[in-house]
Design a protein around this nucleic acid. Structure first.
Length: 438
RNA sequence: UCCGGCUUAGCUCAGUCGGUAGAGCAAGUGGCUGUUAACCACUGGGUCGCUGGUUCGAGUCCAGCAGCCGGAGCCA
């Protein structure tokens, strides 16, 4: 073996003899020439083995390699004769590490969704999945960078929670030493406590929703980042969300352009994501959607006071090349903790950010109710158990303060950035309505 | 929970009017010195999702069930 290098650094070793360690991705060849595509986790390199460059046994062994055989391959780095900027390895040695016991199930041809999901642990090795998950990593890193660089303190929210806050139908219940507990649906209430202690906080972790949803936008387990800021009003929340999304998109474009190209993503659509984003009042949004609805639409008529469906969100965002923010929804369709609009009691100071290209809601947030009496009335109005909110009410009892924040779903963000048809490919091991494994 | 669609070889699919099972890929064998979802030839491979019904005869028609996919509601 020569010096082992990752395939991502091959351009720095032209004319040197190096070793790659990885797995056979694909093989083509003839009696006297083998083309071995070797995948090492960092990329894929074509290794060319001529019959006259190696001994007979090595050449024969290379011709029998099965897909996903693990191996060390040694050779001289050269420029690809036909492709500019692409390097390949003129193989001089091959060492097989692990021979597959059975044919690899994922072939270079097409497969169906169910088959691929059953083999998700192997599917991760494929080129496109590799690209998607590297974009996901870049999003996660950008999220942390943004908040860390803007004086936010990371406050981890608990995953076990004691009480049902937004109705038990969408909660996963579990046993907790003799009492029932639920997996968290949101860290927000805890972030409000954090904001009172640290001013600017965020949490980032898995979130669980037992929704009977099987659409392209839903997972049972997904990751959400939730910032919360003391003394921030609705306009401040929108400023923050806009600045944050621009930063994440820019960082992904900066660091993962090659992966977006593998996914054949239209990069100019992402480059258009610049401040300011349109801010549309709910009432105006309803009018725009009503106007944009095709006459043969099968959706129920949209009236002032109702929430938007997926189709409505797509119609609304269609006219824009960047995300739009819809603010001041009817309080009746929003959570109990949202502050009422002082200018119109029917409205809540909430905001949803809708991604372009039909990806729908990627951010939901707003200003929180800070008046104890109003909050108590809202808890009662929503039929929630007051005893569950003892500590939460304390935040209003001891130095109440205006504050707000939002939650962003990582998977929907990644699906949009990669322009994927479904969020299931944006998380390594998706948990869906009918899938708990692998 | 509701609405619609799908289920045939390891995988992706075709299968006409109801007449007894097909292709490509994968696997195996052989050929080919620049291939790149390589190509060419040959070989093996089937409980047509399950149960029941109609019929001389069902992959095909009917009913029930199951699984999957998409959508609605709900949400990030």
């Amino acid at each position: 073996m020569a010096q082992v290098i990752p395939s991502s650094e091959i351009s720095k070793h032209v004319d040197e003899e190096v070793t790659l360690q990885g797995w056979l991705y694909n093989r083509r060849g003839s009696k006297k020439l083998h083309f071995l595509e070797v995948r090492d986790g960092f990329g894929i390199i074509q290794c060319v083995m001529s019959k006259n460059a190696v001994d007979e046994a090595t050449f024969a062994a290379a011709g029998e390699l099965a897909q996903e055989t693990s191996l060390h391959i040694t050779g001289t780095v050269t420029a690809h004769p036909k492709k500019e900027g692409v390097y390949e390895l003129k193989a001089t040695g091959l060492e097989v590490v692990g021979v597959p016991t059975d044919p690899y199930p994922i072939t270079p041809k097409e497969h169906g969704v169910e088959f691929l999901m059953d083999h998700r642990h192997l599917w991760l090795r494929s080129k496109r999945q590799h690209a998607v998950l590297r974009v996901r990593h870049a999003v996660v890193r950008a999220v942390r960078e943004y908040f860390d660089e803007h004086d936010f303190t990371l406050i981890d929210a608990p995953i076990f929670t004691p009480n049902a806050v937004e109705g038990t139908s969408t909660l996963f219940e579990t046993e907790y030493h003799g009492q029932s507990a639920y997996l968290t649906q949101s860290g927000q209430l805890y972030m409000e406590a954090g904001a009172a202690a640290f001013g600017k906080v965020y949490c980032f972790g898995p979130t669980f929703r037992a929704e009977k949803s099987k659409t392209r936008r839903h997972l049972q387990e997904f990751w959400m980042v939730e910032p919360e800021v003391a003394f921030m009003d609705l306009d401040g929340v929108m400023d923050l969300a806009e600045d944050f999304v621009c930063y994440v998109v820019a960082r992904v474009l900066e660091t993962r352009r090659a992966d977006l190209e593998i996914l054949e993503r239209d990069i100019s659509a992402l480059e258009a994501v610049q401040k300011p984003f349109p801010r549309i009042h709910y009432t105006d949004a309803v009018a725009q959607i009503q106007k944009a609805r095709p006459e043969d639409s099968e959706a129920p008529p949209l009236e002032w006071g109702s929430d938007f469906g997926g189709e409505d969100e797509t119609l609304l965002s269609q006219g824009y090349d960047r995300p739009v923010m819809v603010h001041r929804y009817p309080a009746a369709v929003k959570a109990f903790y949202m502050k009422r609009d002082p200018g119109d009691d029917r409205l809540a100071l909430g905001v949803d950010m809708l991604a372009p290209e039909g990806y729908g809601e990627i951010i939901g947030g707003g200003q929180r109710e800070s008046d104890l009496e109003v909050l108590d009335a809202a808890i009662a109005h929503h039929g929630l158990p007051p005893e569950a909110f003892g500590w939460y009410r304390d935040l209003r009892r001891f130095g109440t303060f205006p504050h707000g924040g939002f939650g962003m779903g990582i998977e929907r963000m990644v699906a949009w950035l990669c322009k994927l048809p479904h969020v299931r490919e944006t998380i390594p091991f998706p948990r869906m309505l009918n899938r708990l494994s692998p």
